[in-house]
Design a protein around this nucleic acid. Structure first.
Length: 271
DNA sequence: ATAAGTGTTGCGCA
DNA sequence: CTGCGCAACACTTA
């Protein structure tokens, strides 16, 4: 599940490897992931030169000389810099480059490769409505964003139009570190708790990036990250002892997603 | 072998 | 508008 740390690392590595390269060919094996007809997509970007790679939340935004390539890996996938001789087993999309390398992209569900014409990035609804990157807000920003809002804290954190980049994997550790139950109503959070949550989010995302991202994902070069299960604290560790107090970690349903909590450290009705 | 669980996003509903 | 449940259908684990 690629989330902000992995996407930020992709953007950094793609910036380094691909800026200046020209797309010499495009192969589309799964047209349903496009937002325009396949012919339009291929015609628009073939011959385009890579200018800049940035990201917003879980989206990669590639600016080319002929418009924008917008990538979202959905619930999982790979972007691999390789060559035609070493294509991975599965891929949905290949961009051939002018130095005999190619970019092979795979997503196993709900991934997108979208196109927006030059200067029309704002017309791309799915990226235009995203909130600020989770790493770009200050503690004061977060408190202001939560002010007067109803609902549960976890729903807010996962809502990409509020705060972009956090998914169900990276939401677990900050809530644990801040001692906040995922279902806590937003209006019951104290300023101190919000400040603690903000710090825990920053720490978690930066810690993962410093370790090359998630250990379940491959980077641009096909290498696994080193941010593994040991950093999750309670996430995906049902039945194991809480690292702080030893209480058994519980898995609970929080809306349509699951959460892993220490019932001792993250009580629901704390004040 | 068959079925359930998973993670993201947009949409429909109160 | 806002918060929340659900559906989209690929792949792994019970």
């Amino acid at each position: 599940m690629p989330e902000l740390p992995e996407i930020a690392l992709f953007a950094r590595d793609m910036q380094k490897e691909l800026v200046g390269r020209t797309i010499s060919g495009i192969e589309v094996l799964q047209p349903k992931c496009l937002n325009v007809p396949q012919e339009t997509f291929v015609e628009a970007l073939t011959g385009a030169q890579w200018l800049d790679v940035t990201y917003r939340g879980k989206w990669l935004r590639v600016e080319t000389s002929r418009g924008w390539l917008l990538l979202n890996l959905g619930m999982g996938g790979e972007i691999l810099l390789t060559s035609r001789d070493h294509l991975p087993e599965k891929y949905r999309l290949v961009f051939d480059l002018d130095n005999d390398t190619c970019l092979a992209i795979n997503f196993w569900w709900f991934g997108y490769a979208h196109y927006a014409r030059p200067g029309e990035l704002d017309d791309h609804k799915m990226t235009a409505k995203l909130g600020p990157n989770a790493l770009d807000v200050t503690a004061d920003d977060l408190r202001a964003m939560l002010q007067g809002r109803r609902g549960r804290i976890k729903s807010f954190l996962l809502n990409q139009s509020r705060l972009a980049g956090i998914g169900n994997v990276y939401v677990q550790a900050p809530l644990f570190k801040a001692g906040i139950h995922p279902l806590r109503p937003i209006n019951t959070l104290s300023d101190d708790e919000i400040a603690g949550l903000w710090g825990a989010i920053q720490d978690t995302l930066r810690e993962s990036m410093a370790h090359g991202g998630s250990g379940w994902e491959l980077n641009l070069y096909g290498q696994k990250g080193r941010w593994d299960e040991s950093f999750l604290r309670v996430g995906y560790r049902e039945g194991q002892p809480c690292p702080a107090c030893g209480t058994s970690v519980e898995k609970i349903k929080t809306g349509s997603t699951s959460s892993y909590i220490c019932p001792q450290c993250q009580p629901l009705d704390a004040a």
